Simulated scan of single mutants.
Amino acid sequence: MSRFGFIRNKLDIKFLILYIMARVASPIDFPTLTDLTLCDEGVDYFDFAESVAELVDTGHLTLEHERYAITDKGRQNGAACESSLAYSVRHKCNVNLARVNGELRRNAQVRTTVIPRKDGSLTARMSLDDESGNIMTIELLCVNQAQADRLAQGFQAKPERIYNEVLGALLDNGAEEPEESGEG
């Protein structure tokens, strides 16, 4: 079957995978790698899946906890071969990588965990980081798993808003004008 696109064979697919993995912000799962790699019409899914497995077998990629990461060997070999990828393929990859890397960085900066307590209740721990480190951690007592999950999901959805509202409440000096009574 003839292929369209700039990727012509499994070797090209491997170069593409190494190009992507060298630029991704953190280890990624198979569906994310698939989405990033299928940026060219010439990429066959089955060849792609075989290429990923072969790159793991040869030590170019690692697979831990269902996430792929590039090794030093993969980074070196990928750098030596990336110029063989067409400019348009690299450009599409870079656009897609910018989106994925933004999501990965945000997810790394917003963390939630649910911690069981001895009395059967739970603690929802929610943390927000920036490039310098932790900027806020909140721990809240929860009576059940459903409540802890709702708090964690709410924090994941809008951590910046929660941070700003907590900061605003803490910095509010409470210097509102007292109401005057009509007595005099």
Rank of each mutant, 00 (worst) to 15 (best):
107 N>D: 06
121 S>F: 12
100 V>C: 01
48 F>L: 10
117 R>L: 14
48 F>R: 08
67 R>I: 02
112 T>K: 02
28 I>H: 09
149 D>A: 13
99 R>H: 11
55 L>K: 04
36 L>N: 05
38 L>W: 13
133 G>T: 11
33 L>C: 05
123 T>C: 07
28 I>Q: 08
114 V>A: 00
147 Q>E: 15
84 S>F: 12
84 S>Y: 11
119 D>L: 05
36 L>I: 07
160 E>D: 13
39 C>F: 01
126 M>L: 06
42 G>H: 05
124 A>Y: 02
84 S>G: 03
138 I>K: 15
69 A>D: 14
73 K>D: 08
37 T>A: 15
144 N>D: 15
104 L>M: 00
127 S>D: 09
51 S>Q: 09
127 S>C: 13
46 F>E: 15
117 R>D: 01
144 N>S: 02
112 T>N: 01
61 L>F: 09
46 F>L: 15
69 A>E: 09
158 K>P: 01
36 L>Q: 08
126 M>I: 04
92 K>C: 07
81 C>N: 14
38 L>V: 14
60 H>S: 08
123 T>S: 13
106 R>I: 03
111 R>Y: 02
111 R>K: 15
47 D>F: 12
100 V>S: 00
67 R>P: 00
96 N>G: 06
62 T>M: 12
61 L>Q: 07
117 R>K: 15
37 T>Y: 10
51 S>K: 13
151 L>T: 03
161 R>N: 00
135 I>A: 03
144 N>F: 00
110 V>D: 06
121 S>Q: 13
72 D>M: 08
68 Y>S: 02
81 C>E: 15
58 T>P: 02
87 Y>E: 09
73 K>G: 04
46 F>R: 15
102 G>W: 05
76 Q>I: 09
85 L>G: 06
101 N>I: 07
79 A>K: 14
140 L>F: 10
158 K>M: 07
42 G>K: 07
132 S>F: 01
124 A>I: 02
59 G>M: 05
55 L>F: 11
135 I>M: 12
32 T>I: 11
83 S>Q: 15
109 Q>R: 05
51 S>Y: 11
158 K>R: 12
74 G>Q: 01
